[in-house]
Design a protein around this nucleic acid. Structure first.
Lengths: 149, 149
DNA sequence: GTGCTTGCAAACGTTTTGCAGACTC
DNA sequence: GAGTCTGCAAAACGTTTGCAAGCAC
């Protein structure tokens, strides 16, 4: 399983950005702040844009996407697909796996520990290193499973 | 883990379709034949459309989507997301899990057996019944993992 | 001043939908 | 004949891109 860069603060990330030859702009600072505010949350690009636009209304959604892409390239942000619909973005240090109910859409955050066995089997049998964070595992939650009977 | 309806033949499915009040049309027959031809394959809606159009050129892609949706409702077809890009469709009786390399895109088909441990843990800890087929597990294949070092 | 970054508009790829006509039963 | 299914065109959705102007360094 993969690990992301651990960034402790907004300034850490801005410093990293500068080190890599990037510029520190208002939209970037606000975006990174929004990611820290969301912390364990699951924000779409649109959510983050709304957060940023509350303070800088002219920041365009395409700028959010471009900056998220850049932050992923630096390894401080990851995105996750929770099912159909938009991807969600979070700080790499907060990445974790998800189970999503296909019926009601409810979400269960899961510790990586649950994937240890699968990770070992995939490696042994297929030489494959899993990243359980990038796509959610779909299925049925307890209530919807009962209701289906 | 969930199981789909097992349909043995094109006629089985057409019979089921009729039982449910649906009509048997050329485009539906050809689509189901294409799904049987692909069998263990991973066909996108566009692939299937091409296959159908080889014999009935006027069948529109939207008809393919509508018919795939109907066949999913009947439980004889499922779709799978192998990563970014279009979904793939297959007969429910051929459904299986996938590992996809995020770097080179190579695909590994996996027996459900690998997911037994995860299925048990998810059920015990979260009351969640996993469907390992709907979304692929992303990660890195052996070669790309080595190359990244 | 160099060149990275931005807003805007337009395009992208996949999938869905509204409609009027055509077909199955 | 009733009601389902179809082709077509258009829209929807999330995301990406080309461009010229604007800004950080």
């Amino acid at each position: 399983m993969s690990t992301g860069v651990t960034a402790e603060s907004v300034e850490d990330i801005l410093t990293l950005l500068r080190q890599e030859g990037g510029r520190v702009t208002t939209s970037r600072r606000l975006l990174i702040e929004a990611l820290f505010d969301a912390a364990a949350g699951h924000s779409t690009a649109e959510d983050l844009a709304a957060e940023v636009q509350a303070r800088a209304p002219d920041v365009h959604l395409s700028t959010i996407y471009r900056n998220l892409e850049e932050l992923e390239r630096l390894g401080v942000v990851t995105h996750t697909h929770l099912g159909h619909g938009p991807a969600t973005y979070q700080l790499a240090s907060f990445a974790h796996a998800h189970f999503i109910c296909e019926v009601c859409g409810s979400r269960f955050d899961a510790p990586d520990e649950l994937f240890r066995g699968l990770a070992r089997l995939a490696r042994q049998r297929l030489g494959f290193t899993i990243d359980p964070h990038h796509f959610a595992i779909l299925g049925h939650c307890h209530d919807c499973e009962l209701r289906a009977r």
